[in-house]
Design a protein around this nucleic acid. Structure first.
Lengths: 197, 197
DNA sequence: GTCTATAGTCTGATAGAC
DNA sequence: GTCTATCAGACTATAGAC
């Protein structure tokens, strides 16, 4: 019943699976690679997870919680400008801290979200719709200048995730120095100008 | 020697290959799918292209020309504000006209640019470095407010390509109406504010 | 040029010894 | 719980008839 070892091995597998899935997408990933990366045998992987699908599903589920946290943290009672900039900063920090998770998500959506469609159409859409309403209320109350809430949110996603998802391109163009150097100052300035009255 | 049929079949194959590679990445794509999508048999595919790799390479090569054209068209002698906004608009139009090409490129970069690394480090970097210098000259001449040229370019890429690459997500959140509706007005406004003195 | 047939390899998943 | 051995199917690519 040594659940300690089980938990640890499941964690090792998910860690390796995150590497492989985020670098190749679901179909491009192989159990052989995950086995090699985790140091466990292929049948042992399938002792802990029923299938390749199940591994991927486990990753996406634990990803969603972390992924949506920055948006959940937007406070309708806060200052509109600070709340939006704060959201953008938290999202940018996620690209810095969890680039593989960002690429896992990007791969999934890029390939039509076949395994994440329900979560996007459900949990994420509900959250976005709610925050869109908050932004619209801010605009109506005259606390935020008129702006399209959907495109505002999309622009935050696009600008922050770009640094994780297109990391390879940025490195090749800028050289191997920190690809995100200067991004926070730039995005602070950009959103400050975007939101100012 | 009926080169007409050859050219037409090569085109049919590349058309089908673009569908499959852009939807699944290189490793996730299969010749069976490309064969089915093109209406040709699998061995026939390999009569026209030496390998799966060769097909992918052909797509990337013809992509690069189209892909870099909007940036090449930036005129150092033009008005800085208009040139940058014009570049952004051309890039956005590419997302509208060539979403599959955008996703093909995104898949490739997302997965570490294993087959496009040389072109990015060579042709693209050269072009970017040149345009960065142009922007810096504009700033020095006082014709453009001080701004980080690299992050400016990355922000254009991120914001415009997002609509093609994350199309599935946007559709699920906004419903099946045109996912790009309002994007041009929003981005016009955003970059106008970003660049204004 | 296009096909069927198939070689040879890799894939996800299972059986069974320990 | 973990392994070796192995299955059935899918994979890229080739051979050879037409």
């Amino acid at each position: 019943m040594s659940t300690r070892i089980q938990t640890r091995n499941r964690q090792r597998i998910l860690e390796a699976a995150l590497d492989v899935f985020s670098a190749n997408g679901f179909r491009g990933a192989t159990l052989d690679e995950i086995a090699k990366a985790s140091g466990l045998s292929k049948p042992n992987l399938l002792y802990y997870f029923d299938s390749k699908e199940a591994m991927h599903r486990a990753l996406l589920e634990q990803l969603l919680v972390v992924w949506l946290a920055p948006m959940r943290a937007i406070d309708p009672k806060g200052d509109p400008h600070d709340e939006i900039i704060g959201y953008m900063r938290r999202k940018l920090q996620m690209s810095r801290d969890y680039p593989r998770e960002s690429r896992l998500f990007a791969n999934e959506v890029l390939q039509g979200a076949p395994r994440l469609g329900d979560a996007i159409a459900g949990e994420l859409k509900t959250l976005v719709d709610d925050r869109v309403a908050v932004i619209q209320d801010w605009v109506k109350a005259g606390r935020l200048r008129p702006i399209d809430p959907y495109h505002l949110i999309f622009s935050i996603w696009a600008l922050t995730q770009h640094y994780a998802d297109f990391d390879a391109q940025i490195r090749l163009i800028r050289g191997d120095s920190d690809p995100m150097a200067g991004s926070e100052e730039f995005l602070d300035m950009l959103f400050d100008r975007l939101l100012s009255m």
